[in-house]
Computed example of a mutant assay.
Amino acid sequence: MTAHHDTRRRGRWALAVPLALLATLLAGGTAAAGTPAAPATPVLRLPTPTGQYAVGTTWLHLTDPARPDPWRPESRRELMVSLWYPSVGAAGAPAPYTAAAVSARIVAAEGLPLPPDVLTTVRTNARRDAPVRPAARGWPLVVLSPGFSLSRESLTGLAEELASRGYVVAGLDHPYEAWGVEFPDGRVADCLACEREWPDVAARLVEGRAADVSFVLDRLTGPRPAWRGARFVDASRIGMVGHSIGGASAAQALRTDRRLDAGADLDGTLFVPVPAGAVRKPFLLVGSDRPADASWQRDWPGLAGWKRWLTVSGSGHMSFTDRPVLGAQLGMDPGAIPAERQLLITREYVVAFLDAHLRDRARPLLDGPSPAYPEVRFTEPS
Rank of each mutant, 00 (worst) to 15 (best):
D265R: 00
P49M: 12
R67I: 09
R10K: 03
E177V: 02
I238D: 01
G92W: 04
A109F: 03
A230Y: 06
Y349V: 08
A159F: 05
G28A: 03
R290A: 15
D333I: 05
L150C: 05
A14I: 13
P65D: 07
I345D: 04
D129T: 08
A203F: 00
R323D: 13
T41R: 12
A27Y: 00
P73Y: 09
A170M: 13
C191G: 14
D129K: 10
P140S: 01
A226D: 10
A95P: 03
H317F: 12
S103T: 12
L270H: 01
L172Q: 06
P49S: 12
Y85H: 08
L83P: 10
P371S: 07
A108S: 14
A104I: 08
R219M: 14
G157L: 06
R67K: 12
L205V: 02
G242N: 10
H243M: 09
V81K: 02
L366V: 04
L205H: 06
G92K: 12
R377G: 13
N125W: 04
A40W: 00
L330I: 08
G111I: 13
E380T: 15
V88K: 10
C191S: 14
A23C: 07
L303M: 12
T2H: 01
L330V: 15
A193F: 05
F215I: 07
A170F: 06
G92S: 13
V216T: 09
P134Y: 10
P364L: 12
S295G: 08
G186Y: 07
R255D: 00
R196W: 07
G277S: 11
W71L: 15
P282Q: 06
R255A: 08
S151K: 00
G239M: 08
G314Y: 08
G277T: 08
P73A: 15
V201I: 15
G247S: 07
